[in-house]
Amino acid sequence: MDKSVRLEKQNRTWFLLFLFCLSSLLLAVGILFSLKWGQAQVSWHTLFEALTYQAQEKVHLYIQTLRLPRTLAACIVGIHLALAGLLTQLTTKNPLSSPHVFGINAGASLAVVFGLVAITGLSLLSTMLFAFVGAAAGALLVWSLAGSGGGKQYVRLALAGITVHFLLSSLTEGLIILNQYSTDSMIFWLVGSVNQAGWPEVRMILPFFIGGLLLLGFMLPSFRLLLIDDEIAAGLGQRVMLVRAVGMLLVIVLAGSAVAICGPIAFICLIVPHIARALVGNRLTILAPLTALLGGILLVYADLLSRVIAFPFESPVGIVTSAIGGPFFIYLARRKGGANR
């Protein structure tokens, strides 16, 4: 019996090691492909020279100043959105929740569009601040509408989140229609796009990326409380509300910074945590890093695909993620509904 248990644990360890190595390899290959392929043809030798800064010709500068920051931004934003989705599902105890569905992304989008309309020449830092304020306002509005206590709180959260999402999205569209000359370039951004991301955007989001990962790693043991019933955790003397508040703060930071850079990219927050959970289960010390890796992989490859589906023109990456995530969401909703019945 002990031998079979040890063998099972050993097989599990090897499987996890293989899974993380494969995910890291897929991410590295996706980054290389994203740097090589696009509207301009680049050889592998030229790419190597550009990445090692051995030459400063036009094609090398094109890779260094356009493709490299765009690829890094796609990877970072994918990680942000995937982790934000995982934390949203933990804090709300709803497997179909995400910052996109719960009004957080819509609040950030509305605030950014309002800032662009109200303030001429809005800086990148101001755009980030507007996104944070909008994301926080959307989250607070949802939680205030849902109320507290009662066994149906999480059902009310889902209903309030969907309502707030459509309300804020409608207000955003109204602002764009009424100010179409100053927000004409926002249409591409609102669908979700990384093609405008450069080194300023990467430098702006990098502190939130590092700080968010450090805080997540520090709070990861506490977040395991969210996997059990609140009454049981409170009975064990744990501060569940404080842990949930920190989780929502992390969601606002991760999702708000991602929306400020690349717009409200849909479905990554929802589908990536489910894929990771199906592979490794609910053990957060393994689930969280795998979710981050898969989020970066998905958005990097989605951005690469968005360049070729209408070549030589580029499509918003949000179209690709929606095409992948829409059927997956329907599948999840039907499976969860069947399980509840």
Results as ranks from 00 to 15, higher is better:
202 V>F: 05
202 V>Q: 10
204 M>T: 11
205 I>Q: 13
206 L>R: 03
207 P>I: 04
207 P>V: 02
207 P>H: 02
210 I>N: 07
210 I>C: 14
211 G>T: 01
212 G>C: 01
212 G>Y: 01
212 G>K: 08
213 L>F: 02
213 L>R: 04
216 L>M: 11
219 M>S: 10
221 P>I: 05
223 F>P: 03
225 L>A: 15
225 L>F: 06
225 L>H: 11
225 L>E: 09
227 L>V: 00
227 L>W: 05
228 I>P: 05
229 D>H: 09
229 D>M: 02
232 I>L: 15
233 A>Q: 10
234 A>D: 13
234 A>P: 05
235 G>R: 00
237 G>V: 00
237 G>K: 10
238 Q>K: 13
240 V>C: 07
241 M>Y: 09
242 L>Q: 15
243 V>A: 13
243 V>R: 11
244 R>H: 01
247 G>N: 05
247 G>Y: 05
248 M>F: 14
248 M>I: 10
249 L>R: 07
249 L>Q: 08
249 L>V: 07
249 L>P: 07
250 L>H: 08
251 V>I: 08
252 I>T: 08
252 I>S: 12
252 I>E: 14
253 V>W: 13
255 A>Q: 03
255 A>V: 06
260 A>G: 07
261 I>P: 15
261 I>Q: 15
262 C>I: 03
263 G>R: 15
265 I>N: 14
265 I>S: 14
266 A>G: 15
266 A>D: 08
268 I>A: 01
269 C>V: 09
269 C>Q: 07
270 L>I: 09
272 V>T: 14
272 V>M: 01
274 H>M: 00
274 H>I: 04
274 H>N: 09
275 I>R: 02
276 A>C: 10
277 R>G: 11
278 A>T: 03
279 L>P: 10
279 L>W: 05
280 V>A: 09
280 V>H: 08
280 V>Q: 11
281 G>P: 06
282 N>K: 11
282 N>S: 14
284 L>V: 08
286 I>Y: 14
289 P>L: 00
289 P>F: 04
290 L>F: 05
291 T>S: 15
291 T>A: 00
292 A>D: 04
293 L>R: 06
294 L>R: 01
295 G>E: 01
295 G>C: 09
296 G>D: 03
296 G>W: 06
297 I>N: 15
299 L>V: 02
299 L>Y: 13
300 V>K: 07
301 Y>E: 11
301 Y>Q: 10
301 Y>S: 08
303 D>F: 02
303 D>W: 14
306 S>N: 08
307 R>A: 05
307 R>Y: 10
309 I>E: 15
311 F>P: 05
312 P>Q: 01
313 F>N: 06
313 F>V: 06
314 E>Q: 11
315 S>P: 04
315 S>L: 10
316 P>G: 08
317 V>K: 03
318 G>E: 02
318 G>F: 07
